[in-house]
Each structure stands twice: as C-alpha cells, then as structure tokens.
Nucleic acid binder design. Sequence first.
DNA 1: TATGATCCTGATCAATTGATCAAGGACAGT
DNA 2: ACTGTCCTTGATCAATTGATCAGGATCATA
Lengths: 203, 203
Amino acid sequence: MTQTPAIKSPSARARILTAAKSRFAAAGFEGTSTRQIAEKAGVAQSLLLYHFASKDELWRAVMDAQFERADALRQAVTVSDSLSIEDRLMAGVDAFITLCAEDPDLHRLMTIEGRSKSDRLEWLVETHLRRFFGPTRDLIVEGQKQGVIRNGDPVLLYYTIIAIAGSVFSFEPEMSLLEPRNNAQNRETVSALIRQVLFAQGS
Amino acid sequence: MTQTPAIKSPSARARILTAAKSRFAAAGFEGTSTRQIAEKAGVAQSLLLYHFASKDELWRAVMDAQFERADALRQAVTVSDSLSIEDRLMAGVDAFITLCAEDPDLHRLMTIEGRSKSDRLEWLVETHLRRFFGPTRDLIVEGQKQGVIRNGDPVLLYYTIIAIAGSVFSFEPEMSLLEPRNNAQNRETVSALIRQVLFAQGS
DNA sequence: TATGATCCTGATCAATTGATCAAGGACAGT
DNA sequence: ACTGTCCTTGATCAATTGATCAGGATCATA
C-alpha cells in the first residue's frame, strides 16, 4: 500500500497549511503565489507541490481544515433537541461568532472567493457551505412558520447573519485604518445585533 | 499645453473603465490581468497603458468613478438640515442600498481589497472611504448621545450597516448557487433590517 | 492634400507564475 | 553496511504577467 500516509511529519506540511491559510485569506487564491506561501512557511516552493498535487488542491486542503473546525457550529443547529428554535439558532450564531472572533481568516476564506462564479466557488458551495446553509435555513423557515422569526427571504436573513458576524472581525484591518479602536466586547454586541435582526417584532 | 486632454474619445476609454470595474470587482486587483480587461473591452492590451499610466492607476480611476457616483450618499448624511438624526441617517442608508442594488460592483470594489493591509487599501481609505465614514460616524455618535441610536462602538455599527446593505447584493452569485431565488423586494427588507439594528430599544 | 496631434495596434521585453524533474538527505528495518 | 521509503531542495520549464516601443490609423485644421 503506498496509500495511508496517515500522519506525515507534521512540521513542514502543517507549516505550509498555516502559511497558505493566512495568505489565501489576505489576498485570495489568485493574489497569492506559491512562492509567497513557501517563503512564509520557510520551505522550498517545490515542497508545496510535493505535499499537494497542485496549488488548487492546496487551497482545497486549507478549506477542508477550516470547515472541520466549524463543524461544532453545524451540530449546534442540527441537534433536534428539546431546545427551542430560538435557542438552537442563537447557539449556532454564537458558535459562528466565536469562530470568527478567534480567527478572522475563516470568514475571509469563506467570502473572498465568493464574488464571481468560478470552479473554486462552486466546489466550496457544494462541498462545505451547503452543509451549513441547509440546516440553518430549515431552522429559519420553521421559526418563521411559528412566528418567532421575522418574515422575509430566509436566504437573505441567513446571509445577513453571516455578514454581520463575519465582517466585523474580518475587516479589522480596514476598520483600524479608519479609526484606532478597542475590540474588547465586540462579541456580545454582534450577538445582540443579530438577535435584534432575527427576532424583532417587525414583520 | 500637452495637458488638458479634457474629454478624450469616450468610447474606448469608457469601455476600458467599465470592463476594468467588473473584472476588479469580480476577482480583485491581483486576480485580474490587463489582458483580461482588454479582451472584455475589445481593445488591445497596450491601449490600457496608453490611457492609464499603469494597472495601478487604472484601478484608482475605476475607484474614483465609483465614488463619484456615491457622493449623493455623503450629501444625504452631511446636510445639517432641520431633519432629525434618524431621518438623515436612514436617508444615507437608503441611498447606499439603492447604489448597491443598482450595481453590486460598488460594494465588491469597496471590500475586496480590504482584507489585508496594502498600499492600495491605504489609498482607498484615505482618498474615499474616510469621506463617507467621517460624517456618518459623527451622526451615529450624536444619535447615541440623544438616546435615539443604540449604544456600542460606532465603527462597529457603521460596518454592520455596510455589511448588511452591501453583502446581500454583492454575494448574489454565491447565494444563487445555494438556492434559486427571487430578489424582488430585497431593498425594503434590507432597509428594515438596518433600521432594526440602529434604532432598537436594546442598549 | 499636407500637417500634426490623438488614438490604437502588434511585437517584444524582463519578471513572475505554477509545475516538473533529477538528485540527494534522513532514517528506519534488515 | 545495504536497501528502500519518505522528505526536501535547486534548477529549470512553458506560460503569463505588466510594461515599453515603433509605427500605423484616424481625423480635424489649414
């Protein structure tokens, strides 16, 4: 069996993944060269293409790792427990906020390739995004039926949540250029804003 | 005087600007090649660098044109009329929503370069973004003093507005991949969502 | 129809891109 | 010491990048 490499020497491969993540998040796929990643990881450029078949596959590996971390979010929404719809939805939202606050790269990676149709965006949607969107959307629709959640296009509501939760953290460079700031209790504020949007009394 | 070219033949130069705008919005500065723009504009690649000194300057010209269109927005917020803070702020918000709905490229151009610090982002912030941010921020702060607008970091509130208003329209490709949709009355919904965020009774 | 300025193109440049390959190092098991 | 597998590097490839340049259209004015 030439397969089952299981755990290769973690150091170099892991350093490549880390470097690639931060570069892809900052400049996008096209804006990042394999040599930039290699330099940041402290390895030869040719080593990237030994561990990953192509730049494209390296990008996919980065995405896979990111969304593995995010799976706790999906579970929070999916578990059909005795919890109310409101609680389940906000559990997912807060999990997402936590992820974004811990590592702004997640939201950047999710969105930076999403501006124009491309094979990469299509892969991202089908492989990862849909798994989060599906259950969350169902929850929103059900909440609307029960009159707990404001009416309106559920996809629009879903994207509004993503936009509020993510952009506050991922646009930190731009925001701090505009005005020096203190991001101490952003998480609570963002959570309150989203709650306002979802559960407002307005139709 | 070799200067004062004033109005050059509009057709080619304008076609270049239009093509550049849509490419830059879709793929960002680094993800777009001058040849792609030239092909879309139906001109030779060398013509881009006849009309604009460099790719960088072409990008800046695109941005200048975009923000010229957006100046109505700034005026709506700036005019210190008899209007209430609430009305002035929502006038600006609705103007921004209209701009984003008419042309999703505006929000994409504003944000696609804003993920990592770069000379381009710095130029964008200092030359354009600050002119919009300043008056709007002042309005938010004044509204908070009067107890009309919810408390919290004004920069965060500002960015939340931008995020809600813009991303709903600019992520249309991604959203329609997730689910076929009808964007008929998005504008009213978005406006209502933002109003909810700004003027909610919550602290 | 000359003149001159403006607009536009194709050829070409050096630099950078993702990718490939030969070669050797590290290190285990025999 | 020998073998074989996995890891890593440097040299190098064709393709693409932004930029430059010489020269030809085009067109108003004289």
